[in-house]
Simulated assay, not measured.
Amino acid sequence: MKIHVPGTAHFDALLVDWIDGDGRICAVNAAEARELAISLEEKESLPLERIYSSTSAQMLRGLAREGQPFASGLAVWVNSPQYSEVPMIATVVPDPARGIAVIKQPLPESVLGIGPELAERVEILSQMIGAATEACWCIEFLEPVDTALAEDEIVERIFSNQSRWRACNEAMARLYRVPEGLDFNVQPVSRYFPATEINRRMVRDLVRAGYRLDRAAAVDRRHDDSEMLVENDFRAAIKDGFLVRLWGTTRDIGAHRQREQQLADRADTMQDILSAVPDPILVISEDGLLLAANPAAESVWGRTAEQVLGRPLQQFIETRHALDKLRQAALAGEDSDGECDLAVIAADASRDVWRFRAARIEGEMRRYVLTARRKSRRRARGSTQEAIS
């Protein structure tokens, strides 16, 4: 930002704006309009954040509303057209017709008392955010959002009020596929965060959660206009009841959600298949608890899944040491058919011998899938005693 610093206090060479009683910029002089690229029509006004940082805007808004008669030597930060902040020294004088006039000229950071330690802390934080592998972002509202408004109006203004990106890191640019050499922070917020219905619902959830929300799903747009399913963690800065800043992190969860959907579809397909199988199928844990049963098992043995799930298999098997036999059958099945005969007690107290095929499933928790087939009545009579033992 190239701003001429006059050698004499020539009024027309200084940056001047006027702030009305509502805390909005109602006029700027020619120098400020030129240097800050501001076009302000008659009877038009701008939010203070269009020119000043949020902290400086808050301070000046208070002076305008209090009708401050005179103040000099005020440190303010001014937003340049290049999206940087320029430190300036300001003098505030009353103007009966328009509120207050703010007269400014640029000053180096050293004059404003920014010490080496503070500068070092800012540098460290900037480096940490810049080097982070997770996409970090910040949206600053040039028109702060009044949080006292109705919920729907707050949601609308978060999308419609003037805003800009600030301090977004390289990971953010990569996530949204911003071309090399193009600064993400100078792009319009709406280009990547459009006011779609799902995004409106997410912002409504954010408002209801007190402007602190994690794992919030949204559909954003990449630089090439393709859609991307993301998950956001939100935090907010609210000053004097106005939302001035949102920041957080963003993750692309499209591939994860696609994988979840594939697994869900696969599970539905397997459930359909198992429901159509005429033979009883059970799933048990390593310690013999029933984890699942297909409809055939419920129908043949007369017990619903709610009656058996979570209970030991041995409660429904007359054969002693049934779990050990199933484990041995599963182990043997790795080389051959893993089968054993067990006497099952049905809900009506009848007993029949069933041949169980056992297969072991490895994972975080070892489980066994059991497929049962009733032995013929003639063969079963001769083997019942053997199955019980």
Score class of each variant (00 low, 15 high):
Ser336Tyr: 00
Ala346Pro: 06
Lys43Gln: 14
Pro116Ile: 00
Asp12Pro: 11
Trp247Asp: 15
Asp348Tyr: 08
Ser190Leu: 11
Ser376Gly: 14
Ala97Cys: 02
Gly210Met: 05
Asp279Val: 14
Ala75Asp: 15
Ala195Ser: 12
Gly241Lys: 05
Met365Val: 10
Asp233Lys: 02
Ala167His: 04
Thr384Asp: 09
Val277Leu: 01
Glu260Gly: 01
Arg355Ile: 11
Leu60Gln: 03
Met365His: 12
Asn199Gly: 13
Ser299Pro: 02
Arg257Cys: 12
Arg327Phe: 01
Arg61Gly: 13
Glu44Met: 01
Lys2Cys: 07
Ser72Val: 07
Glu227Cys: 09
Glu180Gln: 10
Ala71Ser: 13
Ala329Met: 03
Ala372Asp: 04
Ser275His: 08
Leu15Glu: 14
Glu151His: 05
Phe184Thr: 04
Glu364Met: 04
Lys375Cys: 05
Ala90Asp: 09
Pro295Asn: 08
Glu227Phe: 13
Val230Asp: 03
Gln162Val: 00
Arg360Tyr: 04
Ala33Trp: 09
Ala195Met: 03
Glu386Pro: 00
Arg121Asp: 05
Ile3His: 14
Arg34Trp: 10
Trp301Asp: 09
Val219Thr: 05
Val93Glu: 08
Ser190Arg: 12
Ala13Glu: 14
Ile114Val: 12
Gln58Met: 11
Asn185Phe: 12
Lys43Val: 13
Ala322Asn: 00
Asp337Gln: 11
Glu306Val: 15
Ala297Ile: 07
Asn185Pro: 11
Ile273Tyr: 13
Asp233Phe: 02
Ala217Arg: 07
Val219Trp: 02
Glu49Lys: 02
Ala217Phe: 03
Glu334Tyr: 06
Asp287Met: 07
Val244Asp: 00
Ile317Thr: 13
Ala305Phe: 09
Arg327Cys: 01
Arg121Ile: 06
Val92Arg: 12
Glu117Cys: 02
Arg251Leu: 05
Pro188His: 09
Pro108Lys: 12
Arg360Thr: 06
Arg251Glu: 03
Ala167Glu: 03
Ile19Ala: 02
Val122Ile: 14
Ala305Lys: 10
Ala57Cys: 06
Arg357Asp: 03
Thr249Gln: 12
Gly73Glu: 08
Cys26Asp: 02
Leu289Pro: 01
Glu364Gly: 05
Leu274His: 05
Glu109Val: 10
Glu153Asn: 06
Phe159Tyr: 14
Val189Thr: 10
Arg204Ala: 04
Ser72Gln: 08
Cys340Tyr: 07
Met88Asp: 02
Glu306Tyr: 15
Arg121Met: 06
Ala264Gly: 01
Glu109Pro: 07
Val145Asn: 12
Ala27Gly: 01
Arg360Leu: 08
Glu117Val: 02
Ala330His: 09
Ala173Cys: 04
Ala217Gly: 03
Leu229Val: 08
Tyr368Asp: 06
Leu175Thr: 00
Ser383Glu: 14
